[in-house]
Simulated scan of single mutants.
Amino acid sequence: MAETVLVTGGTGYVGGWAIVALLERGYDVRTTVRSLTKADAVRAAVAPRDQLTFAVADLMDDDGWDAAMAGVDYVLHVASPLGDETSKDPDALIIPARDGALRVLKAATRAAVKRVVMTSAANAASPASYAEDGITDETLWTVDDPKLPAYRRSKTLAEKAVWDFMASYDGPTELTTVLPGAVLGPILSADNVGTTRIIQRMLSGKMPGAPKIGLEVVDVRDLVDLHIRAMLSPEAAGERFLGTGEFIWMREVAAALKAGLGDQAKSVPTRELPNFVVRLASLTDPSLRALTISLGRRNRHSTAKAERILGWKPRPAAQTVVECAQSLIAHGVARDRMAG
């Protein structure tokens, strides 16, 4: 009989690709949705298959999680709770992230699943300032500081909470965490562009220029592959794995789009914006505020551990951003609908 993998958040960008990859590998997949009304959209995105079933569960509610875990062999916890990113109170993001992760892990341990692989973020293993030189690895933990963006704090504190729980847990369930960088790549549906919105904005011409920000681009398909490798490898139990991909400046992203798309990238900005312009714009544009900490960033993360232990190798960043853009164009969502 095929093993069963529970994927949290089947409506999400990473969740959808995780479902696709697991089904292709012959697993039975169960995915959580907050309402069964979302099930048809997931089926349409990943192609209907008998091996895909649904469970209703919300990261902010205990109900449904024990039923979702019944008979499950592995859990890929890739979902992110719907915290309020516009709130000035950091707890609006921190509490949902931390409590949601613990809720999933505790339900998994009650069901004695073999292993939980949880998606954290590279910013949970970063120095206090991205402007610091050097390459860091999984041994570094971000020091919680109220001055840091709430999203970065939420990822760090959520991951710390699950590892603290496992430190006092005595049972068969194992934990592994994966820490991705900027997740880009093709989309499965026009209704879910996920974290590709930055490429949308570049294609739409809504960006006046490229901010001096470096992204560690990981293709969503490679990220899912890393999760599955971490799920299966005996050596991955109890480990953190950075999955950041290649470092690329935003101006290099623009150049890759121009080279790969030709006239379809005519609206992509090529000039680099001075840092002070971005900081001034962030005073009136909330979406830019979280970016200001990354201006001029030099710190990078090492994926040597994932490559050595799991045999993981991500594809080049330029390939990912071009295929991301091609997918957005093919799905008719190259124009950033959020930007009007």
Rank of each mutant, 00 (worst) to 15 (best):
V5Q: 02
V7N: 04
T8I: 05
G10C: 08
G12K: 03
Y13E: 09
G15F: 01
W17K: 05
I19D: 10
V20A: 02
V20P: 09
L22I: 03
L23C: 00
R25A: 11
D28S: 08
V29K: 00
V29W: 00
V33H: 12
R34Y: 13
T37P: 09
T37C: 10
A39D: 10
A44F: 01
L52Y: 02
F54M: 04
A57W: 09
D62E: 12
D62W: 06
G71R: 04
S80G: 08
L82V: 15
T86A: 13
S87V: 05
K88F: 13
K88W: 11
D89Q: 07
D91N: 15
I94K: 01
A97C: 10
A97F: 09
G100S: 01
A101G: 06
A101M: 03
A101T: 02
R103F: 07
V104L: 09
L105S: 02
A111L: 07
A112L: 03
K114E: 07
T119A: 10
A121G: 09
A121Q: 06
A128Q: 15
A128S: 15
D133Q: 13
I135F: 12
T142S: 15
V143Y: 09
V143S: 11
D144T: 11
P146F: 03
L148R: 15
A150K: 13
R152W: 14
R153M: 02
T156M: 03
T156C: 07
E159D: 04
E159C: 01
D164S: 14
M166E: 04
A167S: 15
A167Y: 09
V178L: 09
L179D: 14
G181T: 08
V183T: 10
L188F: 06
S189Y: 12
D191G: 15
T195I: 08
Q200V: 01
A210N: 09
K212W: 12
G214P: 05
E216W: 06
V217N: 03
V218T: 04
D222F: 04
V224Y: 06
D225P: 05
D225R: 11
R229M: 08
R229A: 14
A230T: 07
L232A: 13
E235R: 14
A236G: 04
A236T: 01
R240K: 06
F247Y: 15
I248K: 10
V253F: 05
A255N: 03
G260K: 10
L261Q: 03
D263V: 12
Q264W: 05
S267T: 12
V268S: 01
P269A: 11
R271A: 15
R271G: 14
R279L: 05
A281Q: 15
S287W: 12
S287P: 12
L288R: 13
L291H: 12
L295Q: 08
L295H: 10
G296E: 03
R300K: 14
S302N: 07
A304I: 04
A304W: 01
K305S: 06
K305P: 02
K305N: 03
E307I: 07
I309R: 02
W312D: 01
R315D: 02
A318D: 13
Q319D: 15
T320S: 11
C324N: 06
Q326E: 15
S327M: 00
L328E: 05
I329Q: 00
H331C: 08
G332V: 07
V333T: 09
A334R: 08
R335N: 15
R335T: 14
D336F: 13
A339L: 12
G340I: 12
